[in-house]
Design a protein around this nucleic acid. Sequence first.
DNA 1: GACGCGTGGGC
DNA 2: TGCCCAAGCGT
Length: 352
Amino acid sequence: MNYQYTKQFRQALVQWFLEEQRDLPWRRTKEPYQIWVSEVMLQQTRVDTVIPYYNRFIEKYPTAESLAYSPEEELLKMWEGLGYYSRVRNLQAGVREVVEVYGGKVPDNRVDISKLKGVGPYTAGAILSIAYGKPEHAVDGNVMRVLSRVLNIDADIALPKTKKIFEQAVTELIDHENASSFNQGLMELGALICTPTSPKCLLCPVRDYCTAFHEGDPSSLPVKSKKLKTKNIEYDVYIIRDQQGRFLMEKRPQAGLLANMWQFIMIERQADENSLTKVEKQYNVTLEHNSKETILSFSHVFSHLKWHIDSYLVDAVETNANPENTAYFTKEQIANLPMPVPMLKIWGKINA
DNA sequence: GACGCGTGGGC
DNA sequence: TGCCCAAGCGT
């Protein structure tokens, strides 16, 4: 793209963004901390999904100081249903560092901000450009899709090295006077016009500068490889109710899938094995086998695996010392525990 | 560089 | 239904 085209492209993109952008909660602030929260929530997550979470989160934690030392379980509850739960733990670690090392002020340069937990190349550029107006690249999936079409680039965007091509392109194209609107404009264009399927080229404000529109095929870009089959796991889930009407729950390990979230007792189903007996041994409880009642059978798809769950309600006749990370809770207590969506589904059925 | 890490929506 | 995806990051 020559210099004249570059200038016109910038101007058309920024003007379109200023006129057509959606009114989103995080666009009503320039507080770096609040922009940061929104960017973390938006990682791999749709705008419509994020909006209510963002509003609740900012109301409860309006400043870096208010978030820095809140209990993790409370944070996880605020994040419940959003997914990728390590995001909120990393966010708090980063925010705490800002409070302790930077006096509560989010760094305004890429080197320092990139040291913060959970702040990668994209989030760094997004905060720097949106909150501070710095001409820094912020390349996400939208930007790679839009620019792969505008510049007719067919490099495989599933390969990490391909992102460098787009970071370089943005560095050359970005409007130094309107870095925030330029970066957000690329993403907004990707969300509203230059969509993955059926791009609305006839409505596109930068169609005149789009190489793929004139010389190629926008809908065939970007090129993206990869796609592995997910693993299937079958579980029996037992909602164990003691004689006081409390329910046995277990806290998941502090690392890995759904780290530190709470669940009902979950046993991987094995062929020719009585899982009820296994539960009694493992959790030091005597169950009334006749009371076993089927609650719900369903599948839950994760990004990399699939759970097939059969769930049951069963009464405990006798309970003894609980294993580590397990406890009996009342319904009121359970309402305050962070649980993954499949457990919420089961719990909702129990209370229906 | 490959893989682990959630969820809900669109087609 | 099954697959794709959506404002990525840590290990």
